[in-house]
Design a protein around this nucleic acid. Sequence first.
DNA 1: GTTTAGTCAATTCG
DNA 2: CCGAATTGACTAAA
Length: 666
Amino acid sequence: MEGGSGAFNSTPSPGSFDKSRVFDVKPLRTLTPVFPSNPQAPFGPYPPGFAPFYPFSPQQGGGPDPSPPPQPPAVPLRSFRAPEPSSHENGTGGGSYSEPPKRAGRRPAVRTIPIAKRAKRGPDDFLLPAPNDSVVLGITQAQKEDGDRGTVLSILMRFDALRRKVGQLEDVKDSQHNGNAKRADLKASAILMSNSIRTNTKKRTGHVPGVEIGDIFFFRMEMCLVGLHAQSMAGIDYLIVRGDREEEPLATSIVSSGYYDNAADDTDILIYSGHGGSSNKNKEASDQKLVRGNLALERSLQKGNEVRVIRGLKDANSPTTKIYVYDGLYTIQESWVEKAKTGCNIFKYKIVRMSGQPGAFSVWKSVAQWKESVSSRVGLILHDLTLAAETIPVALVNDVDGERGPTCFTYLASVRYSKSFKLSHQTSFGCNCRNACQSGDENCACMTKNGGQTPYIGNGVLVCRKPLVYECGPTCPCTANCKNRVSQTGLKVHLEVFKTKDRGWGLRSWDPIRAGTFICIYAGEATNKAISGEVGDSGDYVFDTTRVYDSFRWNCEPGFIEEDLIDTNEEYDMPYPLVISAKNVGNVARFMNHSCEPNTFWQPVVYENNSETYLNVAFFAMRHIPPMTELTYDYGTPRADVPGGSNGHGRMRCLCGSTRCKGYFV
DNA sequence: GTTTAGTCAATTCG
DNA sequence: CCGAATTGACTAAA
């Protein structure tokens, strides 16, 4: 973690072919948001906002030869898969660390929450205080009318926290066969809508403040809440302009579900159908009429106003759901009438993307192409830098300069407990479930340790941050499809390691990532400070749980109305201190850069194996992360009582560009 | 096993 | 107050 030897002093000399030279390309601790806070700012489709030659980076900085000659790709020397469940090669040996006594009186995580008890649910089911209390709601009147980035992100975060919690509760009900568990998205949005926790409520054409091109949404209600598209189902949203004589509608935004992407090659053109007519199966098909959204589109064609376009795309990971991508502003170019198969008339509109906007939908198209044929990825160095140690390949890419890869290291997908320390003298026990563990099962020891309910919903989505998450371990008898082994089952999203413009190598994802999704653990060689007496491997590529991490709120801000629904205890409760070095041995996590405003966070996770407790540092998405956005976390700072800790030694300038950037990192 | 069509419950806004 | 609507989750069938 220490910033002693960053990319600054590792510049390969132009013309150097010295293979023995170590190119230290430790990730610098910065974040480049993929999209700037000003969505109108024009830039290219990929990492924007940074000049290729940055004054702080002599490595690429304006030297006489900015592109050093190609070097042989630096590949992992070897690679290893995670150990087999039954194996016992980890953590053996004669160490003597004792697990500290468990903190007494851990707060029970299960509380009775009145959600959807009745078949017909009303807003009062949620027992919320009356609205109009800005402290309780955490959102001001001005923010309701006009959003900003912080407000939008906050509302989306609150929505998804509620949605995950409702989903978790209904998971329990499902297992007890007594609930009509459905539509957690609607229940979450009902809470926020009925309490006016929303923004950009006034309809407008053009951009919506706080929403950026490329932002992704997993539910239509999310777009309602932030004012991007106010219709919960309809594809065309419009406002009424009151003229001198008459009212006329103008289109503000449309949602395209991709039925008509016949112009597949051109991501800037969209052929959109009007609504109405033959939609209802109970009715006879009929001609579409020039009313409502159809009329609004027609008026917008005449007026030439900007129309927001949201592309609905199939989620490759779960084909049954859709992901919505804000693709920026379009204008309507043409309209005509076609005969549908039923013989009835339908309206068609040709909608064209305005130039100068950053790529959004086009990025998705590119990714799809790379997945089809990885060689089409520009700057590809390695198809899979893990050498099949992970089940999903991780590409190594450099499309900014000639560097052929990071320093050699051995890829390992799991944590190796070197320096032989025993994790605990106390034996610990997993569960005795015979099938997949069920949320709410009182006989499942693992669920009980988690407070009775599953810590995960869906495909590896963390419900809320907790002091500690207890997963089922390799020696738990539950089946392999038990959903409570998220951090042990390897990568689920398709990642790439890439060369950033000015911060060494970084990590990003080809896939869209839902908030709460497990991304990876921090793998490497684990040491235990308490027995080794080390202050910490004060070098690069180290994760140290004893550093000081800024507290932040992910589950729920105290004082918000949903506080009674959501567990607000987000303080970690580490079973023992852990230092993981990924300098020589590690996984993709070693490439994650620091940001003062990160998009991932880490969560301690323990599991049991042969009566011993193992600890993982697992990274999860803080919010929805669009494809090709750099993944970052907060590196934290050394403890003040550590020699060389907070005295500024090894300070590096932070280039994260966040408005909350502290300016440096240690 | 995977994809698709049908069904159902539920939203916001005009 | 009612209806329209490029919903989303689930299930059965192909």
